[in-house]
Write a protein that binds this DNA or RNA. Structure first.
Lengths: 344, 344
DNA sequence: TTGTAGGCGTTATCAA
DNA sequence: TTGATAACGCCTACAA
């Protein structure tokens, strides 16, 4: 037996389809008709067909979510989005691309072909052209986490450069003068900006950057391991390292532990991203915490206002601030130089 | 300007819609028509409307994914599923319910209303009735991670009891006789089975279980903290603790570090789940690793075969095994008793 | 307030 | 092979 349609409901309730449709869309309807329709729906186990509705209304009540991978950060955002958007009747279709251009294309084509109402995506430079194409369509595109420069659309980003600069300045305050940095992919704005923060902190302190201490990775755990390995093997190794994301930090920690080095004692360490466990890895990893809830809230607000039509015409560009969580992994040089600092 | 339809393509190519449709569905078509259609599609930037297609075919090429939350485990599975199912043309709509009955209902209703082709879900006892309802429909339901007893459908589960028993037996081997356990919700099979494993290990070793050492939590970080706090405050505290999942372990670790206790020295610790960082938390957390890839592979295989119609009539019931990763957090009593053991 | 009918973009059927 | 046409389930005028 097939699924009942609005027509079956109408029959069973003894009214016309139009009436049932109006009932489903919360429009005025006679009271006795209402009860009979409700009865019929319950009897038949009727469930509205979203597809058919979408055909007419041109609204699928679906939002796409495209990220490189479902790591702690992206999963956290997803959790919030599912909750807040579901409350407004939207479902979320997820895609991830692992930084592969093919996967990106496929995802965006699938999204477009499914006529999703909007798409939230974490940029990658590979994404640029395709996104432009999307933008010419009528689907709102909201970019977060990683900027796609030159694309004019709503964006919710963190203050990468400022946060990195702040963190590295703190490291300098603590007495470090040779600070290694492990960056992510420099084709993306996130990678660039975080490195830029590192550089500016040095400039501001009148220190020069030793190019040898700049390791360009690509956000992966292995990059962190390799970088740290290289640092440790140097004639004059850095006394502290700044990592541009948490995965690379994990790699770095792994390398340190393989080499019997102790964080906060043999070497200091500060990282972008603050997954829960960084608190628990002795002596506590000093980390830049990205405000996931806040980012998700902005994304939700923007998506909904775009879909309502209540959003302003011009694209919105939001930058949220990060907090530096000072922990034991920043301490080596302080002890060496005898300086003292209070936590923030 | 609206999106071009198959009709526009037909016009532009000078053929009938039926021909275009056949082209789109990889059916035989005259060569010259094929090239003209491809030309037209490129010119117009045509993209097939999945909705309209779904109306006819009764296939949305969409799979639902419903879990309590997007933690490391569920995100890992999701990552694999998105990849493997996307390769076959399926998209994934995600839902999470935070163990709230309302959210579950809403998710399942939304899923049903969207006419998804199948749904993969991590069971909860609250889910039972609703799932039964779903099962009467024609959408395949695949349960993983947490069983929903009494529901006859495809399942992919890990050998919770055996893995827990094995782990706790190891703890006993290492000389522990007072072992605390922090369980998850006992309304679900996962919680029950893991506790059962703990109990059986004791039985097998001829040890009795001190009820005082059984803390019933609900999978959350706070539960782990509270449990450990209670253990530490005891007259005769346990020398080791078995945690039923990683979140509770994190809570427990947090509590230990707050109290200045050292893992593997003051107290031993073994946990279900093996997120990456457990390796890095000194002295390394001994953990039961769930084979995420394997689980995802089974899920994929089952979903696809159900949708193909190539699956057997009876529900499949798959149990995968877990590996115990021995690390430094299991060692206290060994040293105390002078025993030696080799790793597995 | 209600009933009727046309159309959303596809696919499937049938004749040509 | 191809073209024409009737569905698929719903919404929305429009007329009653």
């Amino acid at each position: 037996m097939k699924k009942p349609t609005i027509l079956d409901v109408a029959d069973s309730a003894g009214v016309a389809v139009g009436t049932v449709s109006r009932y489903l869309n919360d429009q005025r309807i006679r009271k006795d008709n209402r009860t009979r329709i409700e009865q019929a729906i319950a009897d038949l186990g009727y469930r509205a067909n979203t597809l058919a509705r979408a055909m007419k209304t041109e609204r699928t009540n679906t939002v796409g979510y495209l990220v490189p991978k479902f790591d702690e950060f992206n999963s956290g955002i997803l959790t919030q989005l599912v909750r807040s958007l579901r409350a407004r009747g939207y479902s979320i279709v997820t895609f991830h691309h692992s930084d592969e251009a093919d996967a990106i294309n496929e995802a965006l084509e699938s999204a477009s072909s499914r006529r999703i109402d909007a798409i939230i995506l974490s940029g990658t430079h590979e994404v640029t052209e395709k996104v432009q194409e999307l933008l010419t369509g009528e689907q709102p595109v909201i970019i977060f986490n990683n900027d796609v420069p030159g694309v004019e659309t709503d964006k919710v980003l963190v203050n990468d450069e400022a946060a990195a600069q702040d963190a590295v300045s703190r490291m300098i305050d603590f007495g470090h003068t040779r600070i290694g940095v492990v960056t992510g992919d420099l084709n993306g704005s996130t990678g660039q900006n975080r490195l830029q923060g590192y550089t500016k902190a040095h400039e501001q302190a009148g220190l020069s950057v030793d190019e040898e201490l700049v390791y360009v990775g690509n956000w992966g755990q292995l990059d962190g391991y390799t970088a740290m390995d290289r640092f440790l093997g140097m004639e004059n190794p850095p006394s502290a390292v700044f990592f541009s994301n948490y995965l690379m930090t994990i790699g770095g920690l792994d390398c340190l532990s393989s080499n019997g080095k102790q964080v906060g004692k043999d070497i200091d360490l500060v990282t972008f991203d603050d997954p829960d466990m960084f608190r628990l890895i002795p002596p506590g990893i000093t980390a830049i915490e990205q405000p996931i809830e806040q980012i998700a809230r902005h994304l939700t607000e923007i998506v909904l206002s775009r879909l309502d039509g209540t959003a302003p015409d011009h694209p919105r560009n939001i930058r949220v601030n990060c907090a530096l969580k000072l922990r034991g992994s920043l301490g080596v040089a302080r002890k060496a130089s005898g300086k003292t600092h209070e936590d923030s």
